[in-house]
Amino acid sequence: MTTVVRTVVPAVLTVALVVIGGLHLIWAFSPWPLADEVSFTRTVLGSDSGEMPPPALSALVGLALIAGAVLTLMVNGTIPQIGPGRLRTLGSYALALVLLGRGLGGFLLNSGATSEFQRWNTALYSPLCVVLGLLGGVVAVAASKR
Rank of each mutant, 00 (worst) to 15 (best):
A142F: 08
S39L: 00
T78G: 13
H24V: 00
A140Q: 10
N110W: 06
P53E: 09
L57E: 08
Y125W: 12
G101E: 08
G83M: 06
R6K: 15
L87F: 07
A56V: 14
G137F: 12
S30G: 05
G62A: 07
P127Y: 03
G62I: 00
S58T: 08
N121D: 08
G22W: 09
V138R: 11
L109I: 02
L134H: 02
A142C: 03
T14Q: 04
S58K: 11
L95A: 13
P55E: 11
T78I: 08
G62K: 13
A35L: 10
L34D: 00
R42A: 03
L109P: 00
G137T: 04
N110L: 11
V8R: 14
G105W: 07
T89K: 09
G101K: 07
V70N: 07
G105P: 05
L34R: 00
M74G: 10
N76Y: 04
E51V: 06
K145F: 02
G137D: 09
L87I: 14
G91P: 07
L23T: 05
P53F: 13
P31I: 04
I26F: 07
V8I: 15
L132S: 06
S58N: 15
I82T: 14
A35T: 02
P55R: 14
G77C: 08
G50T: 01
A28T: 02
A69E: 01
H24W: 04
A96W: 01
S144C: 05
A142R: 14
S49C: 02
T41L: 01
L99M: 14
L108C: 07
V38D: 07
A123C: 01
A96R: 05
H24S: 06
A16R: 03
S115H: 09
P33G: 08
A16G: 03
T43R: 00
G83L: 05
G21A: 07
S47N: 03
A140V: 06
W27Y: 09
T7I: 12
V38K: 11
V139C: 09
F107C: 11
W27D: 02
I26C: 10
Y125V: 04
A69P: 03
I26E: 02
T3M: 13
S115P: 01
S30W: 09
I79E: 06
L73K: 11
A67R: 12
T78A: 15
G133L: 07
V139K: 02
E116A: 14
V4E: 10
T2Y: 08
M1G: 11
F117A: 01
A94Y: 08
G105H: 11
V12F: 05
R86V: 03
A113W: 05
V130D: 01
L87S: 13
V18N: 04
L100A: 10
V38E: 11
L95G: 04
T43E: 00
P84R: 15
V8Y: 10
I79P: 11
L73D: 02
T72S: 15
G77N: 09
M52D: 01
L109N: 14
A56M: 14
T3Y: 15
T122F: 15
L124V: 11
L99D: 01
V138H: 08
T43K: 00
V44Y: 00
V18F: 13
N121F: 02
R102Y: 13
G50K: 02
V61T: 12
L132W: 05
